[in-house]
Nucleic acid binder design. Sequence first.
DNA 1: TGAAAAAGTTAGACAAATCTAACAATTAAA
DNA 2: TTTAATTGTTAGATTTGTCTAACTTTTTCA
Lengths: 219, 219
Amino acid sequence: MAHSLTEENYLKALFNTANKAGEVNVAELSKTLEIKMPTVTSMMKKLADKKLVHYESYKPPRLTEKGRREAGLIIRKHRLTEMFLVDKMKLGWEDVHDIAEQIEHIQSPVFFEKMDEMLDFPKLDPHGSPIPDRNGKVVLKDYTKLSDCREGEKVKLAAVINSSSDFLKFLNTYELRLGTKIKIRSIETFDKSMKVSYGKARAETLSNLVCERLLVEKE
Amino acid sequence: MAHSLTEENYLKALFNTANKAGEVNVAELSKTLEIKMPTVTSMMKKLADKKLVHYESYKPPRLTEKGRREAGLIIRKHRLTEMFLVDKMKLGWEDVHDIAEQIEHIQSPVFFEKMDEMLDFPKLDPHGSPIPDRNGKVVLKDYTKLSDCREGEKVKLAAVINSSSDFLKFLNTYELRLGTKIKIRSIETFDKSMKVSYGKARAETLSNLVCERLLVEKE
DNA sequence: TGAAAAAGTTAGACAAATCTAACAATTAAA
DNA sequence: TTTAATTGTTAGATTTGTCTAACTTTTTCA
């Protein structure tokens, strides 16, 4: 019934890198997991035997309903943990991913229920990603990339994409956090960099690379 | 440098079941780990290669200084976690062992430093066992088994031996907790059971099996 | 003190998860 | 539309940690 740590990591990767159709290339899985393709292929067969993925030779694997649920529950544990580490243990949002990556594999329903309760049943993790519910289901918000906004718009930072420690430390030094209200002053047509104002920063320039990683809500 | 989960479990077992000379039989390790003797033998060789145990054929293995330190640090993580689960997460002392058994393998110094800080640097875990220091060193208290006390003595419950969930639940129903002051009214010579009083219980009978698992401090 | 019991080791097999090398299918491009 | 590149699979080896069966050493005790 329970899955190995390895299997759990494949389930997570399938969940996180799936396209709208729920499919992922073996090549992409291989890349994100840093595991060679033949190994991924053989694990897909194993997970197919366990009814966790749909798999046919030469076609992109896809989580089954069951697999998506299991994956969602692991991600739920990951995100609850991140929230706990930030809110209760006062760690920075740039420091919690690696710890959560380990704690998400803890087998103890009561442990995570206690966390959930202590956090008053949060819906979002510290990076703005939705925490799947008790059935592993996620409700996706329709945020916009800052890079897709227009001059003059006023938006609120709602989530970050690909929350690597380095990127989050960069945001820290710029005093950009979730909830920060941003006004787009101007957009440089050449490199799509944006001149924005927020908080004390009255005319900060953000590169397109940064803007593409920031998800915002329009006012 | 880091050890596998499996190796960590052997180190812990070596630490926990060592006699005064620091030695453990292969047979006993086999029993406590629930792993067959040949497997234990081969792991002893592996740990000897890593300079974590002293090992010679047909002699009882013994942790090296390095091995004892590493083992102590794992047990430190275990006991800090138990304390955290009881104090901060409000789990019962009978529910924390299995969770701590998993969390003790988390690789993240900062995570456990935060715990330690939040708990205000505790010296004992929720079962009265000493928490090893940052170097993996334990300071042993010289408690007495309740079963070794004499009629008329007044003692205080300081720790429990072999803290299985069932035993701890038993203590819960008897309202026996760490710190409880106990007076020994009489000892039955036939079965060594004790009639004791403590708290609201004025004449409770405790079997020798129970008394042997309770460590007390004399007033 | 010598036979029986207990403890420990060796040898060889197995499962899980990984890899590389070689081959096959699919997709993209000239 | 044929070829080249990409993607995916098969086959077989490797590592880690486990097992059983058979053998050896040490300990116990009659």
